[in-house]
Simulated scan of single mutants.
Amino acid sequence: MDEVYFVRVVGVSNYQQALAESYAGQAVRFVHEPDNPYDAMALRVENSAGATIGYIPRNSWLRAVIHERGRGVTGSISSVGMARSCMLGVTISVAICDDEVIVASYFPDQLPPEPPKGGFRYWVTSAEASDQRAA
């Protein structure tokens, strides 16, 4: 049996309508947005209807598992409820697997960028490499 881990989703204030239509047990999928202007390693979380419900936090161990180790994850909504801020929040349950990671553009009207030679894991770069490419 696979181990199940729980992760709180962030950015939920922007997706309250989608959260109101989500429910515990609903499948979620994780989408890497390499052209996200705020975070090139962003992992968007969508419910089974395809609506964004938030993002995996920047400091989450789950990002390292996906980006650095090249693993996939499967997940579902563990709970949706009212937070102290009087907004809906969501916790998801995830299991590590070998599923392919979905890659999509942050911008709805654009195709996702082409992956670098070597595949998905090579989108991960150090800050120095990013600075050198910009120069």
Rank of each mutant, 00 (worst) to 15 (best):
M1W: 02
M1L: 01
M1C: 08
E3M: 09
V4L: 14
V4I: 13
Y5N: 06
Y5G: 12
Y5D: 15
Y5R: 11
F6V: 06
F6A: 07
R8T: 15
R8K: 15
G11K: 01
V12D: 11
V12A: 04
V12G: 10
S13D: 06
S13R: 14
S13E: 13
S13F: 08
L19D: 05
L19Q: 13
L19S: 03
E21W: 00
S22E: 10
Y23V: 06
G25F: 00
G25E: 04
A27H: 06
A27M: 07
A27Q: 11
V28F: 01
R29T: 05
R29D: 10
F30T: 04
V31L: 07
V31G: 07
H32L: 15
H32Q: 13
E33T: 12
P34Y: 04
D35M: 05
D35N: 10
D39E: 08
M41P: 01
A42S: 13
L43N: 03
V45C: 07
E46R: 04
E46W: 02
S48C: 06
A49H: 05
T52K: 12
G54N: 04
Y55L: 04
Y55R: 09
I56A: 02
I56K: 02
P57V: 10
R58P: 00
S60E: 09
W61V: 01
W61P: 01
L62N: 10
L62C: 06
R63F: 01
R63D: 08
V65P: 05
I66Y: 01
E68N: 10
R69G: 03
R71G: 07
R71M: 07
G72Y: 11
G72P: 06
G72C: 07
V73G: 01
S78W: 03
V80F: 10
V80S: 14
G81T: 11
M82F: 01
A83K: 12
A83P: 01
R84T: 07
R84K: 13
S85W: 03
S85R: 13
M87G: 02
G89A: 14
G89N: 13
T91H: 10
T91M: 11
I92C: 15
S93D: 08
V94G: 08
V94N: 05
V94P: 04
V94F: 01
A95F: 07
A95H: 03
C97R: 02
D98I: 02
E100Q: 11
I102P: 02
I102G: 03
V103R: 15
A104N: 12
S105D: 13
F107V: 02
F107S: 04
P108M: 03
P108D: 00
D109G: 03
D109S: 09
Q110I: 01
L111T: 07
L111K: 05
P112C: 03
P113A: 09
P115A: 02
P116N: 15
K117R: 12
G118W: 09
G118H: 03
G119H: 05
F120A: 00
F120W: 04
R121H: 04
Y122H: 14
W123D: 12
V124S: 14
T125F: 01
S126Q: 06
S126H: 12
S126A: 10
A127D: 13
A127I: 08
E128R: 12
A129I: 08
A129N: 10
A129R: 13
S130Q: 15
S130K: 13
S130Y: 11
D131P: 00
A134F: 07
A135N: 14
